[in-house]
């Protein structure tokens, strides 16, 4: 069953430039989708429509059957969004305060908040750092805290915008391991990247955007061959005639 259904979605920037032009897209519950595209292809704009940060100027976005503009809270509870810049996403003065921010906004009882925060921090491996100030965390830990902040709201879909940006090898592996574990636990994952190398081995579907339109969409092993046509670097392993290997091996 599809958890996200987008039809005829158009969006223009305030200066009139088009950013999305007629997007039709469905995403199945429990799938792992990689959304790729060069800078300015419209990836982030599309993601912001999934939890109502942007409303459709034309077309519809349905989350679990409900149009986003009809029930914003439903959209934001169902689709958790992890932004590229973890530093400007973390609002709490300590790690656990930040993870509790979303559940507090949902007005959950204190016991439920405690339970969901504990579980989210354990899931991303930050349980031991719960009292630490976020600005003392490493880049990978900050990114994992941003994921925990979203996980604590118990969303079905997790959308990650450039989750590996500015991370070292170890940081990439830490974040990737959590994303793969979340997918294994049944969540729908949408990862937006402009470098396929790190995540492609885990994806079930690859969608490439170009100038606000879906250029290609399908299984990664076939779609990836067209990547360079759309300004995305072909992973080195494929260039050499092999298959992309997981960074977790």
């Amino acid at each position: 069953m599809d958890i996200i259904k987008i039809s005829g979605l158009y969006h223009r920037y305030p200066d009139g430039r088009p950013s999305l032009e007629g997007i039709d897209l469905t995403i199945a519950r429990g799938s792992f989708v990689v959304l790729a595209g060069a800078n300015g292809a419209g990836k982030s704009t599309l993601l912001k429509h999934l939890n109502g940060l942007l409303r459709p100027q034309e077309g519809t976005v349905r989350i679990a059957g409900v149009p986003v503009e009809q029930d914003l809270l439903h959209a934001r509870r169902t689709v958790g969004m992890v932004f590229q810049d973890a530093d400007s996403q973390i609002v709490g003065e300590t790690v656990s305060d930040d993870a509790a921010f979303g559940p507090e906004n949902l007005n959950w009882p204190a016991a439920r908040i405690r339970e969901s925060v504990d579980s989210a921090l354990e899931l991303v491996g930050l349980g031991a750092l719960r009292d630490r100030s976020p600005h003392l965390l490493s880049g990978g830990e900050k990114r994992r805290l941003a994921i925990a902040g979203v996980l604590a709201m118990e969303p079905e879909v997790i959308v990650l915008d450039e989750p590996f940006a500015n991370l070292d090898y170890d940081g990439v592996r830490q974040v990737l391991a959590r994303i793969v574990a979340l997918h294994a636990s049944g969540r729908t994952i949408i990862v937006c990247v402009h470098d396929l190398e790190k995540v492609l081995a885990h994806a079930q579907r690859l969608i490439i955007l170009q100038r606000g339109r879906i250029a290609v969409d399908g299984p990664p092993e076939t779609v990836v061959l067209a990547a360079e046509t759309y300004g995305i670097r072909l992973p080195a392993a494929i260039r050499l005639g092999g298959m992309v290997e997981s960074w977790l091996r």
């Binding site: 912001k48 939890n51 940060l53 932004f83 810049d85 979303g102 507090e104 906004n105 949902l106």
Partner: peptide
Amino acid sequence: VTADRLASAMEARCYGMERTGHQ
């Protein structure tokens, strides 16, 4: 720019007037 991103992130996490109070 950071403030703008922060506002988006807070909105994405359902920030509003009705929040769970401290016990």
